[in-house]
Design a protein around this nucleic acid. Structure first.
Length: 110
DNA sequence: GGGCTGACCTACT
DNA sequence: CAGTAGGCCAGCC
């Protein structure tokens, strides 16, 4: 089931970092399936400890209406992990998966 | 089988 | 930088 694959990828996101829907789709082996990723999020049971909040859109923004409850919760969870929002957007160069690898390779501080 | 929807993306204007 | 258009495909009438 593609949904499980998506969940596994999302579950593999390091704490304090985020991934775009497109990246998750690509890592899950299905290109151009960003939309399916979002559907997998909705279908994700509350019981499972899934870091759904670490998934944002390609612009580094939360894909909820800014006035919605989900937006606030996701933002709060991410900030709780050390992710910084600049003008409502996340710096994907720093908090994206690529940024995570960069920090591991070059040991750059936050 | 057909049509609409969606926590999206890319490219173009 | 903002807005539009087309693509994409599982799920649900």
């Amino acid at each position: 089931m593609w949904v499980k694959t998506v969940w596994q990828v999302v579950d593999g996101i390091p704490r304090g970092h985020v991934l775009t829907y497109g990246e998750v789709a690509r890592l899950a082996g299905m290109s151009r399936a960003a939309r399916r990723v979002s559907q997998a999020m909705r279908r994700a049971p509350k019981g499972m400890n899934l870091p759904w909040h670490r998934v944002v859109n390609a612009q580094g923004r939360i894909s909820f209406p800014p006035d919605s409850h989900g937006f606030q919760r996701q933002k709060d969870l991410l900030e709780g992990e050390g992710v910084v929002f600049l003008d409502g957007k996340i710096d994907l160069e720093r908090f994206g998966y690529q940024g995570a690898l960069d920090q591991l390779l070059w040991g750059e501080p936050l």
